[in-house]
């Protein structure tokens, strides 16, 4: 049994939010396995639990019950600080609204994950420059984030996600705040990263245009996986 080929293994994951007397079951028992090097999309209407699922996969949140193995390590029981370490080393996030630090240069934004890792200042700079180059922003290192266009901002965010060589990139509506053409450009960046370095990419979206780039699409509805389609490319 080659367990080693699984990057994500979810077993019966549930997540229940308790607000006063009301209970909201956001996830009602998700079991799913994602192979290393996959590029998959999670779709679903709002309220389907896709954001919650992404938070759990991204180690930002812990499931109420169930087990989650990331690269064969049981992470669903780890404490906050250990989860921070996992996010730092193994996961790169790309958000819909970019989430870059304001009034800070592109380079410094990309350096951020390395600041919380044990990397020397010199290496931090070199790796951040290389990551910016990878996403096609060479020469833009010293631009402040508010001087960049939406597409450039998202490229900076992708460079930040890449810089610590994670095994998984989680993108939450990465094209949601971009026009169609820029959105396609950004998706091409993901595609080329995935093809060149074999990095696993999980996209959360409700845009069918985005799912074109995924090998598999999972549909979520009411906290459960509705169906799973393999795209023929």
């Amino acid at each position: 049994m080659s367990e080693n080929n699984n990057i994500i293994k979810l077993e019966n994951i549930t997540k229940t939010y308790v607000m006063g007397e009301n209970k909201l079951d956001a996830l009602k028992g998700i079991s799913y396995t994602i192979k290393r090097g996959a590029m998959i999309a999670i779709m679903g209407p709002s309220g389907s639990g896709k954001s919650t699922l992404m938070n759990v996969i991204g180690c930002l949140d812990k499931p109420t019950s169930g087990t989650y193995y990331l690269e064969n390590e049981l992470v669903s029981k780890l404490d906050k600080n250990r989860l921070a370490g996992i996010r730092n080393k193994r996961i790169g996030f790309v958000f819909q609204n970019f989430n870059l630090l304001a009034r800070t240069s592109a380079l410094e934004n990309v350096e951020l994950p390395l600041v919380y890792s044990n990397v020397s200042a010199k290496e931090t700079r070199e790796r951040a420059q290389k990551a910016l180059q990878q996403v096609g922003l060479k020469g833009r290192e010293d631009h402040k984030t508010n001087q960049l266009s939406g597409g450039e901002k998202q490229r900076v965010a992708i460079a930040r996600a890449l810089v610590n060589h994670p095994s998984l990139i989680l993108a939450d509506e990465p094209t949601g705040n971009l026009d169609t053409k820029t959105g396609i450009d950004i998706m091409e960046v993901f595609k080329s990263l995935h093809e060149k370095s074999g990095i696993t990419v999980v996209l959360v979206t409700h845009d069918p245009e985005v799912t074109v780039y995924a090998e598999k699409v999972i549909h979520l509805r009411d906290g459960l996986i509705e169906n799973e389609k393999r795209r023929e490319t």
Binding site: N81, A84, G85, R87, K89, F93, N99, L100, P113, Y116
Partner: peptide, 13 residues
Amino acid sequence: REIGVRMSVGARE
């Protein structure tokens, strides 16, 4: 927001 971003890229408490 900045704190959230820092935490998401691995800043501990």
